[in-house]
Design a protein around this nucleic acid. Structure first.
Lengths: 218, 218
DNA sequence: AAATATTTTTAGCCTTGTCTAAAAATATAT
DNA sequence: ATATATTTTTAGACAAGGCTAAAAATATTT
């Protein structure tokens, strides 16, 4: 069994490893968890004794197969709870993160399975991130940043890169939601801003926005 | 804000105070929380500094108004989650306690309110215990132990005194569920057992059972 | 009322998870 | 290749929450 703190470390390492594709540095973990590198050092030692990470001093940290399973099960719970909050309790997508951060630590296999079924076995959370299956498997969909589309290319919104409340609220205001189709009408060389069409309306989008919105090319 | 441990102490004191109607002893808390009296002593000091309990050395402990509110809100969450697990996730009433014990510590006022509404503002949990309202108020219903009914008296099952999994499973087996009507056909002086009618069928009930089942006289 | 029993508190220690400051290892630059 | 900078680890301290053993206070007997 893992403590709350251990679970948070596992999750952080899981995300960092997926993002970068390689071993994770003590410093990177410290930054992600808003703690100190020395604390991370201590914790990594404990985790490697529990055989959830592989660790060589001064080299990066990697999850073991077992560690990956634990971490994926936490992410699975987090994302299922997010779906629950949005679909059943009328939370908006910018309000769910902190609550899911707590709910993900509830220990009860039956609860997770029943919740999954109650929600209709969702494949993605409200931000478009995939929900790991029981064995930790992820089905990755082909997605591209809006900023990588060429003029006249078309795509469907499928996720966000930045899931801060600020960004999500901004998207709400512009009525950009997952599932909607976007056509790139124009790309400005000057500031890399885009002119897009969505819901039949023309909209101007800054590069910062386009760099944080994922679409599936169509 | 209160730690998990503090919340558990508050809840224990709340229940003990309701049960006995007076100040709670260090020993009683220790027994309830399966810890040592010395640990309780330490914690009580902290809690009284936070103004949630009133405490005089060697005298009993009592919750302050503020403390009662906090405790009631935890009990409220516990019981709402129990309803959720039974009504929405198909848990049976003997499986919910441990999970609710974890869920009751999730901090999010919006979550509690939305959950309450999603469940249709239930007044009682699956064991017949009342769910405190937002201000900590409890509407107590008039209930009596089955063992206190006289011959030929009738009542409706409304709650249990012992909510251990063993007892609840026993009731399931005998098909004794909340809401059903019971008629006392006979009382045996010899062993205080009862002969009752339920669902039109005759059933023999030991004193131990009759002492742990609440009915509302009708 | 004294003696005994019980309850409660205190004192000191342990573990977990964190921190700061300093030392050690590795990486980068000249 | 040596000096400098950065990263990582170690050492020592601290707070929370718990424990044991002993002391102090209160209750109960005789």
């Amino acid at each position: 069994m893992f403590t709350l703190s251990e679970e948070n470390y596992l999750k952080a390492i899981y995300h960092l490893e997926l993002d970068t594709g390689k071993g994770v540095s003590t410093n990177a973990i410290a930054k992600k968890l808003e703690t100190k590198a020395s604390s991370v050092s201590d914790m990594i030692k404990k985790l490697s004794e529990k055989d959830v990470v592989v660790y060589k001093k001064y080299k990066g940290v990697t999850l073991t197969g077992f560690g990956k399973k634990i971490a994926a099960s936490i992410v699975r719970k987090h994302r299922l709870w997010e779906v629950f909050l949005v679909d059943k309790l009328n939370f908006s997508w910018d309000e769910v993160h902190d609550v899911a951060e707590q709910l993900e630590h509830i220990k009860s296999p039956k609860l997770v399975n029943q919740l999954d079924s109650f929600l209709g076995f969702p494949s993605h959370d409200p931000h478009g991130d995939p929900i790991p299956d029981k064995d930790g498997g992820l089905k990755i969909i082909e997605k591209s940043l809006l900023s990588t589309l060429e003029k006249n290319e078309t795509g469907v919104c499928v996720g966000v890169n930045d899931s801060s409340s600020e960004f999500l609220k901004f998207l709400d205001k512009k009525e950009i939601t997952l599932g909607k189709q976007i056509i790139v009408l124009e790309k400005e060389d000057f500031d890399d801003s885009l002119s897009i069409q969505i819901d039949g309306k023309k909209l101007s989008i800054s590069n910062k926005i386009a760099n944080n919105l994922y679409v599936q090319k169509s």
